[in-house]
Design a protein around this nucleic acid. Structure first.
Length: 519
RNA sequence: GCACCCUUAGCUCAAUGGUAGAGCAGCUGACUCUUAAUCAGUAGGUUCUAGGUUCGAGUCCUAGAGGGUGCACCA
């Protein structure tokens, strides 16, 4: 602590023994800081104390004293804690910036106030150190709200230097691998995760007002059903059995509707063993809800309400900028009524050709050829229609759009449309050309569900690895009676992306999946 | 999986095939109202890895590693 009295000559004599203390490479820098810790311990000071009691967060401090006149000095003695982000030394004065989770504040450290020893301790602080500060609330002559420091204690030493204080950390690899560093120096990163949190908590509040019950269902599945995706495979030792990580929440949640819970939802991680892109992470977060006695139009309304409310809660507005696939940003008000259009309507809009899943595959293959969609010989009319839709129309769906009327063939868990046996009462929500949500009137006829499962199994047996199997327990549940039910699934990461205004899913997943780093 | 691009100091970035530099962070010194403080000085490099071409490679070639973007996959 008394380094003012014996500053550097000693460490320079030590240079001969500890060459790492010379220079300013990373190793030398760490050695220098670790040596400070040794000096503190030698004086009986614990450089890693157990706790610190603060009187105010920095936001509370700003709320209470944010409007002081320049040159004011209060009687208010406060204690705050945070991380040193900036330091400006000026002879017998040191200015510092401390940041906590809520805000930041300037420290005003005067040698005359804090004393020689305390002043030397402050001078020895490095950017990144955690400190607890006691002092008086004041403003400088220029009006900057500050704390005139009477005492400062180190709460934890940063042994490794922070990235550039002005440019921050921009290397994406390092940002994602060392998310802690990213969060320290990049305001935008902190903000994106605040938005994500606000979205999820908003969903929970909205659903609570509608009397939905939040549940947790298994992640380890005997059969990976509820979606078309390749699963991750794992193994349980004592049962000596193969298990899958879930690819969807759907089938367990609907069992709960059979059980009479009527309104359930789950926000949970699902896992799909597929490619990684700006829109895909192998593990991501889905919200699925099921509501008894409702159909797809009812959950469509809930979907709209959930997302509009989340926008208000997370960013305080329903107006967002949405980039189209060309990168042009469109200003969109999410509060406006969302467009509803059927898949075959949208295909007709783009191609001028009327399609329907009842048509023979040949005519749809001809259209696919015409618009340039590659297809598999095993695909039926329904799958062809979906592919044609994705290829021709999807990229133009910038404003929120409910696409409805998916063919039965591609919707094994959705109920057929009450007016058209070839399509389902299903919708997908597209915003910014990205699929955000999916919902339908749930198929509750156990006999028809078995036939659909058998079609899935046949496709899987024919080599389509993403298709499903016959889930006998789920069929048994349906045999006990699933009431009319509307179901909804929302990709929470993508909603967070939309509202945070970021273009990569990695910006809203704290620790995205990466190859392991070589150490 | 395929194509293209990137990898240089702790961080952000320079460097016609010809002695690897700067800013920030660090260190030393000056400075009692700074705000990315300023000023003077100083130190810091396995140029991602392994080969190759060349009198000479951060730069060119080959292979590999990691990352990014696009495509494929993703109902």
């Amino acid at each position: 602590m008394s380094e003012a009295s014996n500053p550097k000559p000693e460490s320079e004599t030590a240079d001969n023994d500890v060459p790492e203390l010379t220079g300013s490479g990373l190793q030398a820098e760490k050695s220098r800081r670790l040596a400070q810790l040794d000096e503190m311990r030698a004086k009986g000071v614990n450089p890693y104390p157990y706790r610190f009691d603060r009187s105010h967060t920095l936001a509370e401090l700003r709320a209470q004293w944010g409007h002081l006149e320049p040159g004011s000095e209060t009687e208010a003695n406060v204690s705050i804690a945070g991380r040193i982000m900036l330091k400006r030394e000026q002879g017998k004065l040191i200015f510092g910036t401390v940041r906590d989770r809520s805000s930041d504040i300037q420290l005003f450290v005067s040698k005359a106030v804090i004393g020689d020893e305390g002043f030397a301790d402050v001078a020895n602080l490095d950017l990144g150190d955690w400190v607890g500060v006691h002092g008086i609330v004041m403003t400088t002559r220029k009006g900057e709200l500050s704390i005139k420091v009477s005492r400062l204690e180190l709460l934890s030493k940063a042994v490794r230097p922070l990235p550039n204080k002005w440019t921050g950390l921009t290397d994406t690899d390092t940002r994602f691998r060392q998310r802690y560093t990213d969060l320290i120096v990049n305001e935008d990163a902190r903000r994106a995760f605040q938005v994500r949190h606000a979205v999820i908590s908003s969903f929970r509040r909205t659903l609570a007002t509608k009397e939905f019950i939040e549940v947790e269902t298994p992640v380890l599945h005997v059969e990976a059903g509820g979606a078309h995706a390749r699963p991750f495979l794992t193994h349980h030792n004592s049962l000596d059995m193969q298990l899958y990580l879930r690819i969807a929440l759907e089938l367990h949640l609907k069992r709960l509707i059979v059980g009479g819970m009527e309104r359930v939802y789950e926000i949970g991680r699902v896992f799909r063993n597929e490619g990684i892109s700006t829109r895909h992470n192998p593990e991501f977060t889905m919200m699925e809800l099921y509501q008894a006695f409702g159909d797809y139009s009812e959950v469509m309304a809930i979907c709209e309400e959930l997302i509009v409310q989340a926008a208000r809660d997370a960013i305080g507005t329903t107006i967002v900028g949405i980039a189209d696939p060309e990168g042009v940003v469109h200003t969109v008000d999410l509060a406006e009524p969302w467009r509803r259009a059927s898949m075959i309507e949208l295909i007709a809009e783009k191609t001028g050709v009327e399609t329907h899943p009842s048509q023979p595959v040949e005519s749809l293959r001809a259209l696919a050829d015409k618009v340039g969609v590659r297809y598999d010989k095993r695909w039926g009319s329904g799958k062809l229609i979906e592919e044609i839709f994705e290829f021709t129309a999807e990229s133009s769906l910038i404003c929120p759009t409910f696409v409805t009327g998916h063919p039965v063939e591609i919707s094994p868990l959705a109920r057929a449309d009450r007016n058209d046996p070839f399509i389902t009462e299903r919708f997908e929500l597209f915003v910014g050309a990205r699929e955000l949500a999916n919902g339908y009137s749930e198929l509750n006829d156990p006999v028809e569900q078995r036939l659909r499962f058998e079609d899935e199994q046949a496709a899987k047996d024919a080599g389509d690895v993403e298709r499903g199997t016959v889930d006998e327990d789920y069929l048994r549940a349906l045999e006990f009676g699933l009431p009319p039910t509307g179901g909804l699934g929302v990709g929470m990461d993508r909603v967070a992306m939309l509202l945070a205004g970021v273009s990569s899913i990695k910006e809203v997943i704290l620790f995205p999946t990466l190859r392991p780093e070589a150490f």
